[in-house]
Design a protein around this nucleic acid. Structure first.
Length: 366
RNA sequence: UGCCGGGUCGUCUAAUGGCAGGACAACGCCCUUUGGAGGCGUCUGCAGAGGUUCGAAUCCUCUCCCGGCAG
């Protein structure tokens, strides 16, 4: 195992390009890797060639950057495991009326698990990505801790809660102490061709950002079965919904109905095939339950422990208290009510210093 | 066809003789490596025809619809 060798996940964007350049500057021997995660031609929806990660142009850009850094670059095909782990989960969750976080699954199962296997075969000790996050080893508790990056505005620690201790022990986040602005400047300084590429944003395998279309194409039969149930407003049926998967808690757009004031999806009843709509106030909840808990910067919680929690990607950590802990499941209660606590979304628990204590999947709100 | 109401953006609703306005919806842009939220912006209407008036959504006639009551 070569301690100086790093596998860098290069998406072809600015961030991972700069991450690679910084590692080279620091004296590491890097091997650039672009992960092919889905068939470019099969996803439909007119992929945007200039931006989306994993597009053909992206592979080309990643190669150019690696070449500029005098480093080797490989493209590995992870299409099969991506389909099995990420896309199947994505479709299945929506079909059950939940709202998945594909990036979370992808990071854990594909970006890390699969990439570490590659690192093993290439005899590299480390893997690196362009995420805005930080990892530090704490010898007192013998754990690798995951922490918010310097750029709190761009921080991506939320999507990384699923990483295991083993994964973290082999991870380098070269952008941990940089802001997006600084990264763009570095890209220019390093003369990387990706310096001015726009940030990517949509789910990589739903290039047109239309997940409804994606689900319909992916699973037409199943969707057929759960379509056309009741749309209920204040206890009364006001229409038919277009299918359980096409709604999520807190959704306002697309209801196609006017009630004189904004109306939101307040509940999804998968068993009864019903969508409930109501006022914004009905979305405010104090408590939630989450399972599939992964402990990161700590190995336990105690009842009554004060923490900070995020219930969605772009959320501000809010004060909360742990109310129940049971194996890989826990409950917590917020000091102030949260809007739209959504089953399927990730709960990420932080401490006051920005360390990711643990994460999990929200199963219900109370 | 003998009796009363009532027809205004897609929906709900203001303007009672003086520039048809709002809310919601829809659409667009911004934000965002998840979905949703949020911000900014845009569009669309006086049921039809005539009349009175300097001027009509508003007053008058007829026509067409929609509710009731009378059966």
């Amino acid at each position: 195992m070569n301690e100086n060798r790093v596998i860098v996940a290069m998406s072809g964007g600015v961030d991972s390009s700069v991450a690679a350049a910084l590692l080279v500057q620091q004296g590491y021997e890097i091997i650039g890797v672009t992960m092919k995660t889905w068939g470019f031609m099969e996803v439909g929806g007119a992929p945007k060639h200039e931006s989306g990660c994993c597009s053909l142009d992206a592979v080309f850009d990643a190669k150019s950057v690696a070449s500029k850094l005098n480093s080797p670059h490989y493209t590995f095909d992870f299409t099969e495991s991506f389909e099995n782990e990420v896309i199947n989960n994505f479709v299945d969750e929506y079909l059950h009326g939940r709202t998945p976080n594909p990036c979370v699954i992808c990071n854990r199962k594909i970006k890390w698990d699969e990439l570490i296997k590659k690192a093993d075969s290439l005899e590299a000790k480390y893997i690196a990505t362009g995420h805005y996050a930080n990892v530090v080893y704490d010898e007192k508790i013998n754990r690798y801790k995951l922490k918010t990056g310097k750029d709190t505005k761009k921080d991506q620690s939320y999507a990384l809660w699923g990483l295991t201790q083993n994964s973290l022990s082999r991870t380098i986040f070269p952008l941990a102490n940089y802001t997006k602005e600084e990264v763009r400047q570095l890209a220019t300084d390093f003369e990387l061709k990706t310096a001015k590429k726009p940030d990517s944003q949509e789910i990589c395998f739903v290039a047109d950002n239309n997940y409804e279309r994606f689900l319909r194409e992916k699973s037409p039969d199943l969707i057929e079965k759960i379509t056309g149930g009741d749309l209920i407003y204040k206890g009364k049926k006001v229409g038919s919904h277009k299918g359980i998967p096409f709604y999520t808690i807190g959704q306002r757009k697309g209801l196609g109905m006017a009630f004189g004031k904004p109306a939101y999806v307040t509940n999804i009843d998968y068993e009864g095939n019903k969508i409930f709509v109501g006022d914004k106030e009905e979305l405010l909840k104090y408590e939630l339950e989450a399972d599939d808990i992964n402990y990161v910067s700590t190995n336990s919680f105690f009842i009554g422990e004060k923490v900070f929690a995020k219930i969605r990607y772009m959320d501000i950590p809010a004060g909360a208290e742990i109310t129940a802990v049971d194996n890989n499941r826990l409950s917590l209660k917020f000091e102030n009510p949260k809007l739209s606590i959504t089953p399927g979304q990730s709960l990420v628990i932080y401490d006051k210093d920005g360390f990711v204590l643990a994460g999990g999947i929200i199963s219900k709100s109370k």
